[in-house]
Simulated scan of single mutants.
Amino acid sequence: MINLYKEDFKEKEDFLIYNLGKINIVFSTAKNDRSFNRHKDYGVNNLNTIMETFKLKNLEYLNQIHSDKVYIYDGDKTLINEEGDALITNEEETAIGVFTADCVPIIIADDKNNIVAAIHSGWRGTFNSIVLRTLEKMESRFNLDKDEVKVFIGPHIRKCCYEVSEELKKDFLDKTKIDENTLFDNRNLSLEECILKDIRSFGIKENNIFSLKLCTYCEDEVKLYSYRKSVGTYGRLFSFAFIK
């Protein structure tokens, strides 16, 4: 796995951008206090500005429900009212994205065949291996090249700050079979380690796995939104990818 930092990204307004030729991977920040809450008018307005900022024709996202449901956007009809937590597309000039405020945003990109996916992975989605489900669906529907697939793990609440119950700790240890000292620090859970296990089990090369080392809870240099830190009064980050 390759660790990425703010300096590895191009900054544009309150976005961090990583370019892969025709594919762009973008993580929003809270730098300008811009929140992307699809259930608020201001959030929808902010979402719509993405098309103007990045000169795109379309923007797609889902009604997220902490599931392992994966959709494919084929340009036929919008999916914004569908319930699920992962989107895949090979449509050009269409951004697909997910909302987070501690949960893990994951972007998958095959920059050889121009296929992208955006995933929202909270603890339930992580527990149910939504990233692996997405990779499997990409492989079944598209000419996916495992050697070219790159996975980007975005800002989320990290092991340093994410304490869970003893019951959930036991469930994760039983399910993942990951060494306790790797997965936990006392009751602090690393969602990333679970996700990495699924990515590696699919066969993604180690040097094609990238992690943006920002914790939504304790990061000081880059302003981010955190559900836990704000005690419920929080904004939403939006992580997305597009092909141009």
Rank of each mutant, 00 (worst) to 15 (best):
P155T: 02
L135W: 08
N24T: 05
K213A: 10
N37I: 05
K197H: 07
F184Y: 13
I50H: 14
S129C: 06
I65F: 03
V164S: 09
K22F: 06
S190T: 04
E11S: 14
L212G: 03
G97H: 07
D76H: 05
F9M: 15
A118S: 15
D74I: 11
T100W: 00
E91M: 12
L47K: 07
Y42L: 00
K177L: 13
N63C: 03
R236Q: 08
R38G: 07
Y71P: 05
K244P: 11
Y61H: 05
G84E: 02
I96F: 09
A95D: 07
D14C: 09
I72E: 04
E221Y: 06
K57M: 10
K229R: 03
A109P: 12
V104N: 00
L20M: 03
Y217D: 06
G154K: 00
E7C: 02
S230E: 15
L59W: 14
K170N: 06
C218F: 10
N45A: 11
Y71Q: 09
I243E: 14
I115C: 08
V151L: 01
A118W: 07
L168F: 11
G97Y: 11
N46I: 02
E60P: 05
K6T: 15
G97M: 13
T94N: 13
I2Y: 04
I157P: 00
E139D: 07
N45H: 13
R38S: 12
V131N: 00
N3F: 10
N81P: 01
S211A: 05
K6S: 11
T176Y: 15
L16V: 09
S165C: 07
T89I: 05
K77A: 03
L224Q: 01
K170Y: 07
E92D: 13
C161K: 08
I2A: 00
D76N: 08
I243G: 05
E13C: 09
Y5K: 00
D102L: 01
E206Q: 12
L135H: 11
E83P: 07
T53W: 07
E180H: 13
F9T: 15
E52F: 03
F238T: 01
I115F: 12
H120M: 09
L56G: 10
Y18R: 10
K244N: 13
S165T: 12
E192K: 10
D68A: 14
C160K: 14
N207T: 04
A30T: 04
C161Q: 12
T100N: 04
T126P: 02
D41T: 09
K69Y: 08
T182I: 12
V98P: 02
E166C: 03
T78W: 10
S190G: 04
V149K: 10
R200G: 02
E148G: 11
T53D: 15
I107Y: 01
R236E: 02
Y61D: 01
D41W: 08
G97L: 10
E180Q: 15
A101V: 11
F142Q: 10
E11C: 12
I243N: 06
N128R: 04
D14M: 05
E221P: 06
L20K: 00
S239P: 11
G235W: 03
R228C: 11
D179I: 05
D171H: 15
N128T: 02
K244I: 04
S230Q: 08
T233M: 02
S190A: 10
Y71T: 13
S239R: 03
